[in-house]
Design a protein around this nucleic acid. Sequence first.
DNA 1: CTCCTTAAATAACGAGTGTTATCTAAACTA
DNA 2: TAGTTTAGATAACACTCGTTATTTAAGGAG
Lengths: 192, 192
Amino acid sequence: MPPRTKFDRQSVIEAALEIAQREGISGITARKVAGQLRASVAPIYANFENIDDLVAAVVERVFALSGELVARQRGDDPLENIGRASIAFARGYPVLFRDLVMRPNAHMDSYDALEDQLLEMMAGDERMQDWNRQDRRRLLFKLRAIHMGLSTMTAVGLVPSWLDEDEVEDILLEMGEELMLAASVKREERSK
Amino acid sequence: MPPRTKFDRQSVIEAALEIAQREGISGITARKVAGQLRASVAPIYANFENIDDLVAAVVERVFALSGELVARQRGDDPLENIGRASIAFARGYPVLFRDLVMRPNAHMDSYDALEDQLLEMMAGDERMQDWNRQDRRRLLFKLRAIHMGLSTMTAVGLVPSWLDEDEVEDILLEMGEELMLAASVKREERSK
DNA sequence: CTCCTTAAATAACGAGTGTTATCTAAACTA
DNA sequence: TAGTTTAGATAACACTCGTTATTTAAGGAG
């Protein structure tokens, strides 16, 4: 029988994730992961085909973390939950946020399906009863831009010192409501 | 006398910039720059102390390009000009935008001085006559978040196909105006 | 106790990195 | 024309990278 296994797939992923959080995805190298594990590179190649394979597993893990952050939100509004989770992710994993969110990647394609769901949901909102689909889509894009902007500024450290961490999320909601308010005012103007 | 100089400081910077536009700042290597120049690595080390020195010069050049983009805007409103230039930069140099803007860097510190100027300018706006400095600062932050969000989405390729390039800039202005509108409506409500 | 299996360690490979000592030859002066 | 200066080319160095052939030794089976 062989000696007992000390390093399984999961422990290698965790070690690589540690490095990715500090140095970014491209900071993952066989020797650095081995060092983090306090082992040689052997356990890495025992559990993964090659380094790209490990990196893919780490990326998958990160998106799972991000998904957990969304699921953990307890608000009624899915849009609000996504926005809050996004900012929380940017705050907790700024390096990974830059590496994965601010970069064209396959996971973003799945947004198209999500967009349809969100548009359906918006159609049910009483404040948007008489809006057409194009109006809702345009608002959704604006909301997305806001949440991307606040998340990015959070990840990059551009949130000014006079703003508390939690206040950033307040501003996210505040801006969303202000856009809704402006839209309804404009509608009234137009129907006059 | 020596043979005539074929590669000056500027030509090396331009070659490195070409590579940075395609592969990002970290794509700049001595041999790749030499290949772009159709030369050896010698001219690089004749003009620069080391590679970091060259990279610093390239970064400086990129921020100069970004500054030119702002200066080229012909609108009355400085905020609008900055926003439009930022989106134009994100569209023209998406890789560099990710490498330099979406990353903590020294150039961002100079924003503090700019912020003061912008707040002064906003104080002159008739629509904000009765606002206090904190109100203006909060609005400025929101406008900045919007412009960061739209620029980021542009650089990352998250602008949906139903939105024209120019329309992104339209939305930038539209959102700014909607925030102003909402703010004035809220003020009226409060003073009632 | 001996032997077998195999997880982990080691060390080497080729490729790519920054950097530099050395060489080549261009383009002037005398 | 011969000599001098020096820009640019070349090739080597030490390093890191991914990857793998080989070795070591743990931990049970007989």
